[in-house]
Write a protein that binds this DNA or RNA. Structure first.
Lengths: 230, 230
DNA sequence: GTCTATACGACGATAGAC
DNA sequence: GTCTATCGTCGTATAGAC
């Protein structure tokens, strides 16, 4: 174990709490996965390069391809190494649950994940939006069935009048989108705030905002009070 | 004007109504922009290639670079050629408006745009999420100021009690995200439906879903009725 | 304006010394 | 396991004939 031309980039999460444990000494394989996750998060799959990942990890390029045979497989491994928590966070609705409690729990779990693993979250959510086509088959299948379960659950709630009448598939997408949009100011849209102001996100506030926005829109309309402007 | 090796891909929108006018004879420049828009929408900026765009347009590769000097500039031109309607659709909130009416109008305008220009919409919305860094400076500045105006408008409404108490920046992002998520089943997430089922989206239903979801969550809570399960 | 041929670089991946 | 050198491919972009 030599490598490491530039000691300043040995492991460099923005915050000690961010993503995987920043243990000073990490098995090389984990080290590469960690670096790859950050690079894929920043650049996206297509724009990311093996050289860039190697540089981030402080290794020469061939070392990366020694552990993972190709860029494609490395990306798949990254996905596989992070997928599990997202299954539980994004797809934890069950027909027996109480809707408000279950949806609150979903939002909370998602935001928690975003907080602890911002890079992994970016990678996974982008992959989701692109159809999860690169998820290893085993995961993809489990993902699909659990998506169907969640959609069925939402439909069940809608049918029983526990939720407003909406298309359950759109609804599931919207839940993810809302949870994401409430924490994505840091990642995206510098037009909204100053330039490159990667300021600390208030995750507690994000959770509250997302939950509020989601629930009040999901519950059956109680009384349609529309206050007019003074 | 010769080119056009393969007449089957002269111009090939899935639907005659989709994106720019499918006029059988289009100025070459427009033809390229049209093809580029589709390719960028499908592959994203990084993965798209000049060859691919040329093929889509039925032209040899250098012709594309004759009209637009580089891939970068071509992309910028695509953005510039489509940006205007999105300024009006995404950022049409004014402090004097009635919130419910204004927000309904926003959702309607966005979904309309998605319906008429699915490719352009994909390109623009992705660019937005990446920080709009490639928008030509002139547009970027106008975009920023109008974003600030809309955020101020939302804040104004929140302060006056016309909307629930929420962070206005998150709120603006969420509005866009909800509108998008209600029409994005076609583009994304084949895991939700069958494989590659690019079925026709019901845009009227999407509008209704998004509006319903958004408004009921935005309005000040009238009475917090929570129906328990039977 | 149109198009063939090609320059040039970057990237993914491999060979093979240590 | 680690790393230097390098190969083949494909990308953007250009030269220059028609």
């Amino acid at each position: 174990m030599k490598h490491n031309k530039d000691s300043t980039m040995y492991i460099m999460p923005f915050d000690p709490k961010l993503d995987a444990a920043p243990a000073p000494q990490l098995p090389v394989r984990e080290l590469i996965l960690h670096a790859a996750c950050q690079v894929f998060a920043h650049e996206g799959y297509a724009a990311a390069t093996v050289s860039g990942i190697a540089a981030k990890a402080g290794l020469p390029k061939p070392n990366v391809l020694y552990y993972f045979k190709s860029k494609d497989k490395l990306y798949a491994q990254v996905l596989e190494s992070i997928a599990a928590p997202y299954m539980d966070a994004c797809l934890c609705l069950r027909a027996g649950d109480e809707p408000v409690e279950a949806l609150t729990r979903t939002v909370l779990a998602m935001v928690r994940l975003f907080e602890r693993q911002p890079f992994a979250s970016k990678v996974f959510m982008v992959e989701l939006k692109e159809g999860a086509t690169r998820l290893p088959p085993a995961y993809a299948e489990r993902w699909s069935t659990r998506v169907r379960d969640s959609v069925d659950c939402l439909r069940h709630w809608v049918d029983r009048g526990l939720l407003a009448s909406m298309d359950p598939e759109h609804l599931l997408l919207s839940i993810w989108a809302i949870a994401q949009s409430c924490i994505s100011l840091g990642w995206q849209v510098p037009a909204l705030r100053g330039r490159d102001q990667l300021e600390a996100v208030d995750y507690a506030a994000a959770t509250q905002t997302a939950t509020r926005l989601l629930l009040q829109g999901l519950l059956p309309a109680p009384a349609d009070i529309r206050r007019k402007r003074a």
